[in-house]
Amino acid sequence: MASKSSIRNIITSSTSTIRCAQATQPIRRPFIETSACTFSTTSSRRTPEYDTESADRPRWQQTPARMTAPFRTRPLPKGPVFKVNEDPRRLDDAYSKMLGSGGDKVLSDEVKWLAVTHKSFDHGRRGFNDRLAFLGRRIVSLQTSLALLSSPQASKVPEADNFGRKPYTHVALDGLPGLTQEAKDSVLDKSRLAQIAQRYGLDKVTRWKPRKADNLQGSGQEAVLATSLYAIIGAIALERGGEVANKVTQEKILSPLGFTFQS
């Protein structure tokens, strides 16, 4: 019977032989090595194509070069092509028509274009007016509620109940029956707001991409124009303050809808 020490020596010598054989063979890796530069997070150097004059143009005027695909992945749409306004003078005329004399100077150039840019235009790569419209919609909604509260209502003499009690009445509460969700929805209907936007010429300067260029109404033009109208109010609130935004809302949106305000 072999001793335990001799068996231990045989195992040790065999394993050392296997290790030497593995060391002489090249190491085979299961995965293909890739260059670390491919996954590098460091910013690349500015190439000469971005040093041209077009790189200094504002974002509203052109699509950012790094956000443009090298080739088109979708076929060209069939039918007529809808062309958006690119003339700053036409945009200034629309703002002057809406805000009065000097209206083209109320907002900065970047914000003026952003307020009339829908998210469907250029896949949103030049910015869009959703956030401005969210703020403007809250302002217009508040001013509409105040206008409904101040609107005269048909006075109705409250009748006493079986115990001789009469409901409390006050002058400040006379317009409360007119403040309903149905009344606000009727005032701020998108078709009515779209007509006001067309009156100011916003339909000629709003940048968007309709589903069908020959059917703007069916492509949602009313909702797009209402969004631009809200966005302008939101932009004025951010750059000029809430007081100016409230005044513009009363004079340029609610007054054409039939409300009257005291100066």
Rank of each mutant, 00 (worst) to 15 (best):
P80H: 00
Q143W: 02
R192A: 13
L188N: 09
P70R: 06
A213C: 01
D185K: 14
W113M: 04
G136N: 06
L193M: 09
T52Y: 01
I196K: 04
S3T: 14
R207W: 02
A194R: 11
F71T: 10
R74T: 12
E159A: 12
L173P: 03
Q198G: 11
I18R: 07
I232F: 03
G127K: 10
T41P: 03
A21N: 07
Y168H: 05
G102W: 02
K252C: 10
R29H: 09
P80I: 00
V111P: 00
I32D: 11
V111Q: 08
G242Y: 09
T180H: 07
G241C: 01
L99F: 15
S6Y: 04
P26L: 08
S13E: 11
R46F: 08
A115D: 06
T34P: 00
S263C: 05
K184F: 02
G218V: 06
A94G: 02
R45T: 12
K190P: 02
A213Q: 01
L148C: 02
N246F: 09
H170E: 11
G234P: 08
W60I: 02
G103C: 05
R192L: 13
P88E: 04
A55T: 07
L238D: 12
Q181D: 15
E33Y: 03
R90N: 05
F163I: 08
K166W: 05
E33T: 08
G241W: 00
W60K: 02
S186R: 12
Q262G: 12
L202I: 10
S44Q: 14
K212F: 15
L132E: 01
S96K: 09
S3G: 12
S191Q: 13
Y50Q: 02
E33H: 06
A245S: 13
A21Y: 08
P30T: 06
S219V: 11
R131Q: 14
V116G: 12
